[in-house]
Amino acid sequence: MKIMAIADEEKRAFWDYFDKSRFADVDLIISCGDLKASYLDFLVSMTNKPLLYVHGNHDQDYRRKSPQGCTCIEDRVYDFHGLRILGLGGSVRYNQGIFQYTEEEMSRRIRRVNNAIALRGGIDMLVTHAPAKGYGDMEDLPHWGFACFNDLIRRWKPKYMLHGHVHLSYGGDRFHVHEVGTRIINAYECYELEVGDEDHPPEGKTGSALYDLYVSMSRKRNK
């Protein structure tokens, strides 16, 4: 499947010069935060593609009007045709913003969702706004990465991590991708990702008997 990951800056080629053919082979759009709700509204309505999102630290307006036609995956594991995606938005706390967290607060969020991960036999993709500590973060407090993301990656070994928050336009030694067993991808503005069938179990065949039974029963109900 092809995933279009976006974050932080609206891409002018999409926003001002929209061409639907650009999304013809895209299966899923994922927003890693700090994008206008109207931008996400526009993309999901114009492309007719599913769009998942987490919050960035500047997305407080989502409390007033969330993106329409899109799916928030905060603190949950979302199954997209067998691809198990965990969403954990927000940044390190540097003021009183609503989508900001201390290291301990983010660790508690992870602990609360661990049972859901275990039920599904793991995760294939982690979607965040902030980076993991030491992989694409910066030295100033607002752009620190979370060390607990590293612990989560070591425990569950997702194939991919998508994040935003650190703009590649900030300069310095900035990269879209870090390889640490998990491929950590900075989705700043736009990043296209091909996910192979080998990167996640077939839908309903995770090896977790209870979850696979749930998927099988859901399929029967939806026929």
Rank of each mutant, 00 (worst) to 15 (best):
F42K: 01
E192G: 14
H167W: 04
T47G: 04
H167Q: 11
L162F: 02
V177I: 15
R154V: 11
M161D: 09
F18C: 07
Y94T: 14
F146A: 05
V195D: 08
L119S: 12
R221S: 05
I30P: 00
Y94S: 14
A118T: 13
V113A: 06
G207K: 13
D59M: 08
D173L: 07
D151P: 10
N186T: 09
T206S: 11
I117N: 07
G56Y: 07
S208C: 10
Q68N: 08
E189Y: 03
G136D: 08
P67A: 04
Q68D: 13
G171R: 05
F146P: 03
A116H: 10
E103I: 00
H129G: 00
R84Q: 08
P131S: 02
T71Y: 04
Y170T: 02
Y135P: 10
Y135A: 11
N95V: 08
Y17T: 11
E104L: 14
S107M: 06
G164C: 04
R183D: 01
H200L: 07
R221Q: 13
H178W: 12
M217K: 13
A132H: 02
M46P: 02
Q100A: 05
G56S: 05
H167N: 13
W144L: 14
V180Y: 10
M161L: 14
E105I: 08
A130M: 06
G121H: 02
P67L: 04
M4G: 00
A147R: 14
S38Q: 10
L51F: 09
Y191W: 05
T128N: 08
D25N: 10
D212A: 03
S91H: 12
D212E: 09
N48K: 14
K11F: 10
L40I: 01
D137A: 07
S107T: 14
S107C: 11
F149G: 03
S216Y: 13
L126K: 01
V77S: 07
H178M: 05
W144K: 13
R76V: 06
N95G: 12
A37W: 01
A5S: 09
E192L: 07
K223C: 09
K159I: 08
P201A: 11
I6N: 00
V77L: 12
E10Q: 06
W144V: 06
A24W: 11
F80K: 02
P142Q: 09
A7L: 06
G56E: 04
M161Y: 03
S66I: 04
C70N: 05
R174S: 05
D61Y: 08
K20H: 10
M1W: 06
P50F: 01
A187Q: 02
G134A: 07
Y170V: 03
A116G: 05
H176L: 06
M46K: 15
M125P: 06
E203G: 05
F175K: 10
N115Y: 10
L35G: 05
L52S: 00
L141S: 08
K49E: 00
R63S: 12
M4L: 14
D59V: 07
H200E: 00
M138F: 01
S107A: 15
L52C: 03
T47C: 03
S216T: 15
E10V: 10
A130G: 09
I6P: 00
S21A: 15
